[in-house]
Amino acid sequence: MENIQIHERIGLTGASSFLTTLVLKRLAELSTVKEVHIFDIHSPSVASSKFIFHRVDLTKDEASAEIASTLLENNVTAFIHGSLFSGPTRRKSYHHEVESIGTFHILNAIAEAQIKKLIVHSATFVYGAHPKNPNFIHENYELKFQGPSFVKTRVDVEKQLEDFILNYPECAVTILRFAPILGPNSTNIRARYFMSGIVPKVLGYDPLVQFIHEDDAVRAQIIALTNNIKGVFNIVGRGILPLSTGVHMSGKIPVPFFSALCKTFFSAGYATRIWELPSEIVPFFQFLCVADGKKAETELGFTAKYSSRQALKSMIEANRLRQIGFSVPSSTLGEDEAYATSQGFQRIY
């Protein structure tokens, strides 16, 4: 137990993202945490006396200096970088600015303030969905700068982090690559896929998919914070299931599209707001992108409580309840609030 570390003052970005909100809830309960400094443009939806909010725009040039000075002033020892998106968004250039430039500023600030611990919320989609992927992708799999723009942006972020790890070995960097997070409250792109009445799919492709339950994701994040272990970890749920099994579980009508026409159809539907699935996500419905969670199990000591199937099931069940008016309390509405509210999500303050 010599690995256990106590961080009293923590810095954090991306307070309104889905995972970070859940993490904030847990941090508010943890007695070892005294102060949480939040750097964001919107104040967090979770309230606690521990939280100190600093309005910082990560896309502006002053961000580095502002964050660094606050971190130095308050003796912050650990930092959670959570302002990374869970999938493609409608504002592409803003998406790139927040992820890529935001990471640049945060790394600058951490280097200046000499923070000892950095945790980054990444995702397994950095590996990209490609027919040449192995069935289980290890953490040391080489990231390729290819595919849709949200993957490229994330690869860029990971490259920056790699560079940072090389040049600043005194900072313990933990990169958590989460599988798509599903749970009663999730509104990310994979959850939206199972929410709409008609589920578009690619004719003849049925990849294996993998999810992680939101509770497991939060637990992994807290374990990473309290243990002094650095490295890259895939945080994934137990087991896998074919995508079509998921569709049949949700009980929605699958509509197959020819793979050649898929991109056109998906982008047309996205532009006209018929569905919330951009064409960039299509390869993830065609090819494998499954990560191996063994390293997290052996080194980090994290084992998922829920299997991929259970995570999906909990999401589908909560969704059915929501449709008939039983609102499942959710502290967060994710990245697209308008969409989440239209689906019956209610924010509980």
């Binding site: 027919p131 040449k132 992927n133 192995p134 069935n135 289980f136 290890h138 690619v202 004719l203 003849g204 492709y205 049925d206 990849p207 294996l208 074919p242 793979s259 090819f287 494998l288």
Partner: peptide
């Protein structure tokens, strides 16, 4: 072989039936 996974139906059919994409990692696992 890799190229089967580029085509519809074949890849996922083979996969359900016990086929795995040819790679050192997969064989070793």
């Amino acid at each position: 072989e890799d190229f089967l996974f580029h085509f519809p139906f074949l890849g996922s059919l083979m996969n359900r039936f016990g086929g795995v994409r040819a790679s050192q990692d997969n064989a070793q696992q």
